[in-house]
Amino acid sequence: MMETGSEPLLEVHELDAFYGPAQALFNVSFKLARGEAVALVGRNGAGKTTTLKAIMGLIERRSRMSRYAGTDIRTSPTHRIARLGLGYVPEERRIFTDLTVAENLEVGRLPARSHRPPWTTTRLYKIFPNLGEMAGRSAGSMSGGEQQMLSIARTLMGNPDAVLLDEPSEGLAPLIVEQMAQAIVAMKNDGIAVLLSEQNLDFAASIVDRALSIETGAITFDGPIADLMQTRRHT
């Protein structure tokens, strides 16, 4: 199918999401352009995770329009959305602890679909040297930071054009957070669009230019992250 350059890669219009009978998202709308990095910021329980899960079809959701790479994904099953090239790195990392590091990467492998060179284990081990050293080890024996890296690397194996990253810096030591920021910037430089859910504004500002702010399940701000930091400082 034809894709015009101006069409956003991911576009969500009036997205609602539900946990059983309880509604958790209200009219969430935003766009993400090809290669763009955007932060989704909000307090604990604001609805960041819910937004990402709803886009991936992991929870019950409803929207006026949801498109990824020109395809309607309103009712698509999760695996089909992932196969369109939308990667997801969950908050809890959800590493397969019974599998080795290399096997975790294998689960994430999907055929390349864009002009970019495909991700391979060799290439990933260059970015994440720790993983290369542990390739044959059980993923359950890794530290939190290493698991986070594995989770990102596993998603990259699917050669996504966009990645939903849920609080990758959460609970990690400052040094590791720094590495994480570098890895995400490297992804961005590779042309991958990033939607980064984050509580830490400073961390987000080191990676993205634009931010969405979410409060109790609704978007309250969409603009340059600098502006958002400005208003936060004033209040």
Partner: peptide, 13 residues
């Protein structure tokens, strides 16, 4: 992998 976490396997396509 699916024995451990089916949903994540789906999220990986």
């Amino acid at each position: 992998a699916a024995t451990q976490d089916r949903e994540m396997v789906a999220a990986l396509g």
